[in-house]
């Protein structure tokens, strides 16, 4: 690309002028384009629905006798002698498989405390002599509002954990000098007749940032 002859030089100058003119035009069209287009080039994010209120509820699953007393609710269910006869403790009956027969008046009770259905004697916990109370295996009588003592008579380590705050639900203050700890009782979570925690629905899982734009997250690989 040494020296160009004058005519070629002139031609080259013309080309440069055309390019400059063209550039000017392109710049002005860009200006117009920019002025009217400020949306980002990404798919609109789908609105994620708010989580159902039921998953935000933190109240205990069950109410204990003590809760009912506190809330001044109807306690007639706990008045056993409204139906039973004080002088005649009810007899427990079993079928041929040694499975407890639940009378139709107590059909709401599911007996599954302990494995192999061995814990099927009502009087393991209920006081045969006074149905309105409970009893520990050593014969000590326990009131309905003092369940941990009853449960702990068999589940010693669990009671110890519960007393230390390591088992069961707590709320309120970790710092006892600033406020009280509220500790739920055994029957707030466990049904004494069927103490395993029932299964329940899980709250919705995570939503990914770019779910809309083909960034499919790894669906369960298991």
């Amino acid at each position: 690309m040494a020296k160009l002859d004058p005519s070629a030089q002139k031609k080259s100058d013309h080309t440069a002028n055309y390019w400059l003119g063209g550039l000017t035009a392109v710049f002005f069209s860009l200006t117009i384009f920019f002025a009217f287009n400020s949306k980002p080039h990404v798919a609109a994010q789908p609105e994620i629905p708010l989580v159902d209120k039921k998953f935000l509820d933190t109240s205990p699953w069950r109410q204990t006798y003590a809760d009912l007393v506190k809330a001044k609710e109807d306690l007639s269910d706990y008045d056993c002698y409204a139906c039973h006869d004080k002088a005649k403790p009810p007899r427990i009956r079993y079928d041929t498989n040694q499975k407890i027969i639940i009378p139709k008046e107590h059909a709401n009770i599911e007996m599954s405390h302990g494995t192999h259905e061995r814990n099927n004697i009502c009087y393991n916990c209920h006081n045969e002599q006074n149905l309105n109370t409970l009893q520990v295996r050593d014969g000590n009588v326990v009131k309905f509002d003092n369940i941990p003592q009853l449960c702990g008579s068999c589940h010693g380590p669990t009671l110890r954990d519960w007393e230390a705050g390591a088992h069961g639900r707590t709320s309120g203050y970790w710092d006892r000098q600033l406020g009280d700890i509220n500790r739920l009782s055994c029957a707030n979570c466990h049904n004494p007749h069927a103490p395993d925690i029932p299964t329940r629905e899980a709250a919705p899982g995570p939503h990914y940032l770019h779910e809309a734009s083909s960034h499919e997250p790894s669906k369960s690989h298991r």
């Binding site: 390019w19 063209g22 550039l23 392109v26 710049f27 860009l30 920019f34 400020s38 949306k39 980002p40 080039h41 990404v42 994010q45 990914y208 940032l209 770019h210 734009s213 960034h215 997250p217």
Partner: peptide
């Protein structure tokens, strides 16, 4: 001229990113 045009397109895209955030990119917490 070509470089300037691409620069300007990039600058415009960056202005959008400033306003809407890095959601305009393909990046995520992952």
């Amino acid at each position: 001229g070509a470089l300037t045009i691409i620069c300007l397109l990039g600058l415009n895209a960056y202005a959008k990113q400033l306003v809407h955030g890095l959601i305009t990119t393909g990046m995520s917490d992952e």
